[in-house]
Design a protein around this nucleic acid. Structure first.
Lengths: 302, 302
DNA sequence: GATTGTTCTTTTATGCAACAATATACAATC
DNA sequence: GATTGTATATTGTTGCATAAAAGAACAATC
């Protein structure tokens, strides 16, 4: 399958793809933060959260206004016009997804072994209809996620981590080692405000938001939860290792189908874990975490 | 014809940095493989080992010949002229090191917090006197090693894994978790030929080669040993995680000073571990590994 | 039969100029 | 005092022409 030439499209459109993308980022953030219609969208705060400066945020806000999702008044900034969970917010979020399409296609092709382990840039450019610049950004990103690496000469090589069919089980086994171990590290501690924040978010998901979330969002939320906890060990190597596993697990998520009941149980376990962590019974928490990771969240791989 | 003539001329004049680099790679490989003067340097075999094709290998071989480290006869290929451990081989290996200088400088600056966590490319280009292309290769490499990452907008951010002073202890704690756990994974197995190969190499180091090795080589050899063992778990996530820790530990190695006696003990422990692994007493091996990782290899950090 | 020598094609790197995006500082407004 | 509005310098991107490097195929040689 060959994607259409997006570089030519971009120059033709005046709606600026970049701005729409930024709008999507802002909406996704608002959604994660649980914001409601009427909440203020403060430029600097958004900029900090997205690791950008105010200029691009501004573009995104204007795009949101154009889409009717935000209202702005001079010198008073912008305000959310719709709930980020409402149907009206979907198109903005879709802008991100469109941007992810090639990425997802490649991920799928690798998972299904439709691509050889070693590939050249030129081959990928042809196959997916990308410019060199677009491809390079993409490869940089994939490399950062750790499932492709440059060869010394030409070309790139996909990691065996991805192409293997057992990868999912292996990721699980790895997590089952590092996550409980992190909790057992001497000096493990989770600040109260983190616990509160995590509980609040998990509770919100549990209390019905789950049904409105996409698979991607559910997955993201789960990753964030586990990453915040492992961060408590105060050892960045644990966090970093989990992040990498998660970035690869995300690829599988595309082809796993969801079982909302199982997810509800999963979230309940998160809440239970937080209770134990709050009282600092870390041995018990590690044990709980180990058992939590045994249970499958999603079943059935294509 | 004309073009190739002129390029040959140019490379004769200034010695083609690339060729010297390749020569260094070949010598380093020969050294790792324990080759001796008189051994044949077979192009295809070198190419496979270095993930390159024969063309660049050829350049490297010619550079080695020019440096007097290899002898070539028409249609009979090249032969090692000196032992790779001898003093004569040092200049070729130095070519790699020269190439690594900027890398090491940056690593040092980050470790000593002489660089801010967030940097722009232009700033780095100015500071280290690099062209954009050189810098990008460098950044790609550092990103692959996981201690820098692109920010969404301008610039890059160094990972906290590197800048923190406790990083060394944290790396150790992390390895103490994953390495024994890997050995305990169901299905862990180390092929006999791997054990033989590892033992042979460690034995060689133990029997005197140690004194002739640079800190970098000693470190590299240790990493290879541990990585081969963790590979036995058959779970690429363990291997990958260890690789990343090691690539960051390598930065510390630059500023650690060596204690040859401690290293000798360290290598003896490696040999002991291999004995236990060979008889498949994995529980015991995991225990041994855990204790091995408690002991410090290098002491004294600036 | 394996290895080297040679040639040819493909692929990637580099430098440069115009262009687009981003950051920053400071003034204006609430 | 916090936030938004605006101007400006800085920084990064893209497309293109040219140069260099790498890979692949095949003949020649041992």
């Amino acid at each position: 399958m060959i994607a259409s030439d997006s570089s030519r499209q971009r120059s033709a459109q005046n709606g600026s793809e970049r701005a729409e993308h930024l709008a999507g980022l802002i909406m996704a953030l608002a959604r994660r933060e649980g914001m409601k219609a009427g909440d203020r969208l403060i430029e600097q705060r958004l900029a900090d959260a997205l690791d950008l400066s105010r200029a691009p945020i501004r573009l995104g806000l204007k795009a949101l206004e154009a889409a009717g999702l935000a209202r702005g008044e001079p010198h008073r900034g912008f305000v959310l016009a719709k709930n980020p969970t409402s149907g009206a917010a979907q198109p903005a979020l879709a802008a991100i997804r469109r941007n992810e399409q090639v990425y997802a296609t490649i991920a799928g092709d690798v998972l299904a072994s439709r691509l050889p382990a070693d590939v050249t840039e030129a081959e990928l450019m042809r196959r997916y209809g990308l410019s060199r610049a677009e491809l390079q950004r993409l490869l940089d990103r994939i490399a950062a996620e750790g499932w492709i690496a440059r060869l010394p000469g030409y070309g790139w090589r996909f990691a065996e981590t991805v192409s293997s069919p057992e990868a999912q089980a292996q990721a699980k086994a790895f997590r089952a080692v590092i996550e409980p171990a992190a909790i057992l590290q001497p000096g493990f501690a989770l600040p109260q405000e983190v616990i509160v924040r995590l509980r609040e978010r998990q509770q919100r998901v549990f209390d019905g938001e789950l049904e409105k979330m996409t698979i991607g969002e559910i997955f993201h939320s789960g990753c964030e939860f586990h990453e915040e906890i492992i961060r408590g060990a105060g050892n960045p190597f644990f966090l970093e290792a989990l992040r990498r596993v998660n970035s690869i697990r995300r690829l599988f998520a595309y082809r796993s189908f969801a079982d909302r009941d199982g997810m509800r149980r999963h979230v309940r376990e998160h809440l239970r874990l937080l209770d134990v962590l709050e009282t600092r019974r870390y041995a018990e928490a590690a044990d709980l975490m180990a058992r939590h990771l045994q249970r499958p969240l999603v079943a059935g791989v294509s």
